[in-house]
Amino acid sequence: MNTRPARGKRDPRDIVDTTLRALTRSTLSVIDGRANALTPLIFGRLLPPQFSALIAERVMRRS
């Protein structure tokens, strides 16, 4: 049985490591993974709010 995560998915052990590291530093917020870290930058600062809302709406309709 393959226990590795699918491509583009984070391994749960990596997520736990990130979480535990943040807890030892008393960090208020943590973003795990490069793609997840880029999302707020792109949608929060680089794209106009209307465009970000349009993309979010389309993604939510697909799921």
Rank of each mutant, 00 (worst) to 15 (best):
F51Y: 12
M60T: 08
V59E: 06
I15H: 02
T18P: 03
I42P: 00
D11G: 01
N2G: 08
V16T: 11
P12C: 14
T19K: 10
P40F: 08
I55D: 12
N2A: 07
P12K: 09
L20V: 12
T3W: 02
D11V: 03
A22H: 09
P12L: 12
S52Y: 04
P5L: 00
F51L: 13
S52P: 04
S52L: 05
S52G: 11
V59M: 06
L38S: 13
P48Y: 03
R45Y: 12
R4K: 07
G8F: 04
R10E: 01
A35K: 09
V30I: 06
G8Y: 07
P40S: 13
N36P: 00
N2M: 11
F43N: 02
F43M: 09
K9L: 09
T18I: 11
D14P: 00
R21T: 11
A22Y: 08
T18M: 15
T19C: 13
S29Q: 13
F51G: 03
I42C: 00
F43P: 01
S52N: 04
T3S: 00
A37R: 14
V59T: 01
A56Q: 11
R7E: 08
F51T: 15
T3A: 03
T27S: 15
E57Q: 05
S29D: 11
L47G: 06
P48V: 05
T27I: 13
R45P: 03
Q50G: 11
G8M: 06
P40L: 04
D17W: 05
S63G: 09
V30N: 02
S29M: 09
V59P: 03
T18C: 15
T27E: 15
N36C: 07
R4W: 02
I31P: 01
R45E: 14
A37Q: 13
R13A: 14
V16W: 12
D14G: 01
T19W: 12
R10H: 00
G44K: 01
T27A: 15
T24E: 06
P12T: 13
I42R: 01
A6W: 06
D32E: 10
D11N: 06
